[in-house]
Amino acid sequence: MADANMAKKLPQETFKTVVSSTPLVSIDLLVRNASGEVLLGERLNRPAQGFWFVPGGRIVKDEPLARAFLRLTEEELGVAVPMTQAEFLGPYEHFYTDNFSGEDFSTHYVVLGYAVELDLDLAALPNQQHGRYRWWQVDELLASPEVHKHSKWYLDANAN
């Protein structure tokens, strides 16, 4: 297995070449609280900028999946959650016409969806990817045009 300390993010120009040429592998987190509400954040960055979206992020090269899960839950939720405490929802594909740097090429993600139950304080959540957060009722989330379709897929098996 690769050394987890060797995992690193790419320089921006190199990453642009990767995004324009290959699919990315990521983890999305369907977070429910004890009341069954779903956590969504309003995306600050491309792709899906301005939409309400589940937390998640990319797996980086040489990063074992379990370590990526710990890192992403800590970065996105402020608490490191072991993958063993999550339910695997399955693989998904997300296609976007834009990318993190603009609209000159598309983004393709192969996403591993996971569900976790956590009661989180919205005010304490990180704000690098999402400007604000809220808990959504499932029926409200599925009906809202402000929620990105890719986030709805984790709750509506017929939508994927």
Rank of each mutant, 00 (worst) to 15 (best):
G102V: 01
V18C: 07
S26F: 00
E146D: 15
L77E: 03
N45H: 08
W52N: 06
A4K: 15
P23S: 08
A143L: 07
G56Y: 00
K16D: 10
F100G: 04
L142Y: 13
G90W: 09
K61L: 11
G36S: 04
T14F: 04
A143W: 12
V138R: 14
F69W: 06
N33D: 15
P145W: 08
Y133R: 12
E103S: 13
E37C: 13
E76N: 10
D119W: 12
G78H: 06
L30I: 07
P64H: 08
R58L: 15
G57V: 02
A115V: 06
P145K: 05
E87N: 03
G50R: 10
Y114E: 02
A143F: 12
L125C: 07
G131P: 09
T22C: 03
A123D: 15
D98V: 07
A123G: 15
G90H: 04
Y92P: 00
H108I: 07
Y133V: 11
S106M: 04
G36N: 04
A159V: 14
L44W: 02
A123Y: 12
F51V: 01
I27R: 04
R71D: 12
T84Q: 13
Q85T: 07
V79R: 09
P91T: 01
E13M: 11
P55H: 05
G78D: 09
D104G: 09
N45M: 04
L77M: 09
K16C: 10
T84C: 04
E42Y: 05
L40I: 12
E76K: 09
V60D: 10
A157L: 11
S21G: 15
A2D: 08
L70W: 08
N33V: 12
N160C: 05
L112F: 06
E76Y: 07
V116N: 02
W136T: 11
A4C: 13
F88C: 02
D3T: 03
D121M: 08
V116W: 00
E74G: 13
Y133D: 11
S20Q: 13
E146V: 12
V18I: 15
E103H: 12
V18P: 05
R67N: 06
L120N: 09
P126F: 03
Y114Q: 01
R32Q: 13
T14I: 13
A68L: 03
L24T: 09
L155K: 13
F88H: 12
E63N: 00
F88V: 01
P91Q: 02
V110L: 12
P145I: 08
P91S: 05
G57T: 04
R43G: 03
V79M: 11
I59M: 14
L44V: 05
P64W: 09
G57D: 13
T14C: 06
Q12P: 09
E76A: 04
A48C: 11
G113F: 01
F105N: 02
E13C: 01
Q129V: 03
F69V: 06
L40N: 12
L29S: 08
L142E: 10
S101E: 13
G102S: 08
F95S: 06
Q49S: 10
G90C: 03
F51D: 05
A157D: 11
G57S: 08
A7E: 07
E87L: 03
Q12A: 14
G78M: 09
T73D: 01
V116S: 02
P126C: 02
Q137L: 15
E13K: 14
L30W: 06
I59Q: 13
V110A: 02
